[in-house]
Amino acid sequence: MEVAKLTDITRVYKIGQVETRALNGVSLSINSGEFTSLVGPSGSGKTTLLQLIGCLDRPSTGKVVIDGKDATNLNRNQRADLRKSTIGFVFQFFALIPTLTAYENVEMPLLLNGKTPSERKQRVLELLDAVGMPDRANNRPDQLSGGQQQRVAVARALATDPKLILADEPTANLDTENGEQVMEIMKRLNKETGTTFVFATHDPRVIKYASRVVTLQDGLIVKDTQG
């Protein structure tokens, strides 16, 4: 089953007269259950590609299909709805809402999806448990270490049980131990729940977890290796 299918994608950024072709004709199909790593030198287009898969952005040309639905020409609200139900995000910076506790951060997507209080409670506790943070529910992000924050962020990304989780350099701000820990958690959840993961990374220690490695260079896929 294809979770995401991108066909002939280009993405051109225009700043004044200067055009940057961040993606230059990319076709990529992500299958359910994959644990895919996007690699490539800085500026090769990893983040851009991830944002297009995540419907945070729209391609200049080409087609994006997410979970069987054509997302190419959706408006803002429709894209927000699609993200809300189908996609989870983990960012390089530990993107938790600083005023909310770990519990409330994980709860936020469930609130946005209109879940009942009891559903929310059960799910949040389950997830905090799954990322090894059951006793930190009431801590604010500034009371957590970077690794702990990123684990909460992973829990939040998983909250609505999305088909696809996109992570942009999730380990870049973590030391080796914490980086491995977060990757272990993602890998385990990938195995246990079958959730599809795509992450962009430079980190060779991370790439070893991947079931598929897609290499980008100058806005083109130059290599795609399975296993």
């Binding site: 945070l56 609200n77 709805d81 993200r83 809300k84 989870g88 995000f89 993107a95 946005l112």
Partner: peptide, 9 residues
Amino acid sequence: VLSSIGMKG
């Protein structure tokens, strides 16, 4: 971040 996880305008 909020908008990525589906918060609308």
